[in-house]
Write a protein that binds this DNA or RNA. Structure first.
Lengths: 109, 109
DNA sequence: TTTTCATATCGTAATATTGCGATTATATTT
DNA sequence: AAATATAATCGCAATATTACGATATGAAAA
């Protein structure tokens, strides 16, 4: 169906899945890394750095904005993007919690 | 196109994206949480716990196996699934590194 | 050997994602 | 006002994902 049955999962599980989507495509990983590396906010420089069309980069930025992990400040004719600290922290906590909840002991070797 | 241009990204970026996919669907988050919660490996109990058809659960397990974060031990007529410690640790490191690489300072307010 | 059980795989349908060219929107510059 | 520059959106095509019923598989139990 291609349609996730979100209603049968907890809000936490759905949120983790959404946060994970921010990192679930190499282009978005690259964008996030670039936004962090250049302390200053990067804008359409992303299009130059990535070998992707402007429309494609814009679409990935839109998805990252939807998740909330970045936000853009319009500064015509440019838009300055940057990491959204509270949501980044939310992701840090969420992944830290779930990844830290496994004690390393696996039964079927 | 629906076809990711993996060749224009680094191996590290592609791997992070793949590891993130393990958590990018609530059903897979739920499966991983169940595998951790019950120290003993869960098998088709997953089908009972999740409100998803057996074929659907099996497909998610296949994806998690492809990523390498779980592995199954055939114990006819059941299959015992569990977290694969080295890959789980790889994910912990990878997400810890990227999520820890942002110092909290965001330029646009 | 036939049944039975648990799981994997197949086939199919519906929706989502990825990517890009073309166009639109918005505000500055000339 | 017209031209320019940047980024968002539209429309489209191709592939991927999600989900499930039905069937196949493989080994134990009857």
């Amino acid at each position: 169906m291609g349609l996730t049955k979100t209603e049968i999962f907890t809000a936490q599980q759905n949120r983790i899945a959404d946060l994970a989507k921010a990192f679930a495509h190499p282009a978005r990983v690259a964008i996030l890394q670039l936004l962090i590396a250049r302390k200053a906010c990067v804008c359409g420089d992303l299009v130059d750095e990535l070998e992707l069309a402007q429309a494609t980069v814009s679409q990935h930025l839109k998805e990252l904005k939807r998740i909330g992990i970045i936000h853009g400040e319009i500064n015509p004719p440019r838009v300055c993007y940057c990491i959204n600290p509270p949501v980044w922290e939310e992701a840090r906590q969420a992944f830290g919690a779930i990844l830290g909840s496994f004690d390393g002991v696996s039964c079927c070797n």
